[in-house]
Amino acid sequence: MRGLQGKRIVIAGGATGIGAATAERLAEEGASVVIGDIDLMGAKATARRIAEAGGTAVAVAFDLADEESIHTLVDRAAAELGGVDGLYNVGADLSDGHLGRDTDLLEMDPAVWRRTHEVNLLGYALTCREVIPRLLAQGGGVIVNTSSGAAWGGEPRRPAYAASKAGINALTRHIASRWGKEGIRCNAVAPGLVMGDTQKQRDDQRLQTLALKVARSPRLGEPADVAGTVAFLLSDDAEWVNGQVWSVCGGMSLRD
Rank of each mutant, 00 (worst) to 15 (best):
Ala190Ile: 03
Gln199Arg: 13
Leu234Pro: 10
Leu234Cys: 12
Gln199Pro: 10
Gln199Lys: 12
Ala238Asp: 15
Ala188Tyr: 02
Gly140Trp: 08
Lys213His: 09
Ala162Val: 11
Gly140Ile: 09
Val142Tyr: 01
Ala166Asp: 10
Ala151Thr: 07
Met195Phe: 08
Asp203Lys: 13
Arg185Gln: 03
Pro223Trp: 03
Ser147Thr: 11
Ala190Asp: 01
Ala150Ile: 01
Leu233Ile: 14
Ala224Lys: 08
Gly221Ala: 00
Pro218Ala: 12
Gln201Leu: 15
Ala150Trp: 01
Asp197Arg: 13
Ile184Met: 01
Ala170Arg: 07
Met195His: 06
Leu193Cys: 01
Ser177Asp: 02
Asp197Asn: 11
Thr229Lys: 13
Ala227His: 12
Arg202His: 14
Gly153Met: 10
Thr146His: 03
Arg219Ile: 00
Arg173Ala: 08
Ile143Val: 11
Ala224Asn: 06
Asp236Ile: 15
Gly140Asn: 09
Pro156Trp: 12
Gly196Ser: 13
Pro191Val: 05
Asp225Ser: 10
Val189Tyr: 01
Trp179Phe: 12
Gly149Asp: 03
Gly228Cys: 14
Ala238Met: 15
Pro223Val: 04
Leu193Ser: 00
Val142Glu: 00
Val230Thr: 13
Gln205Phe: 12
Glu182Asp: 10
Leu233Trp: 14
Glu155Gln: 10
Val226Phe: 11
Arg158Cys: 09
Leu207Thr: 15
Arg185Met: 03
Leu220Asn: 00
Ala238Leu: 15
Val142Leu: 00
Trp152Glu: 06
Ala211Ile: 04
Pro191Asn: 08
Gly153Val: 06
Gly228Ala: 14
Ala160Met: 13
Ile184Glu: 00
Ala211Trp: 02
Lys200Trp: 13
Glu182Leu: 10
Val214Phe: 03
Thr209Cys: 08
Ala238His: 14
Pro191Glu: 07
Gln208Ile: 13
Ala151Pro: 04
Tyr161Lys: 05
Arg206Trp: 12
Ser177Lys: 03
Val142Lys: 02
Lys213Arg: 09
His174Met: 07
Leu207Gly: 14
Ala238Asn: 15
Ala227Met: 13
Ser164Thr: 04
Ala227Gly: 12
Ile168Asn: 02
Phe232Cys: 10
Leu220Thr: 00
Ala151Glu: 08
Pro218Leu: 11
Glu222Gln: 04
Ala176Glu: 04
Cys186Arg: 07
Arg173Phe: 06
Pro159His: 11
Arg202Trp: 13
Gly139Trp: 11
Asp236Leu: 15
Cys186Asp: 06
Ala163Pro: 12
Ala224Ser: 11
Trp179Leu: 05
Val142Pro: 00
Ala163Leu: 11
Asn187Arg: 02
Ala162Leu: 11
Ala162Cys: 12
Ala190Phe: 02
Thr198Arg: 15
Ala176Tyr: 02
Thr146Val: 03
Ala176Asp: 04
Pro223Cys: 06
Gly167His: 09
Ile143Thr: 04
Asp197Ile: 13
Asp236Cys: 15
Lys165Glu: 04
Leu171Thr: 02
Gln208Ala: 14
Ala211Tyr: 04
Pro223Gln: 05
Pro156His: 10
Ile168Thr: 05
Lys200Leu: 14
Asp204Tyr: 14
Lys213Ile: 05
Tyr161Gly: 07
Ala160Ile: 12
Glu222Asn: 01
Gln205Met: 13
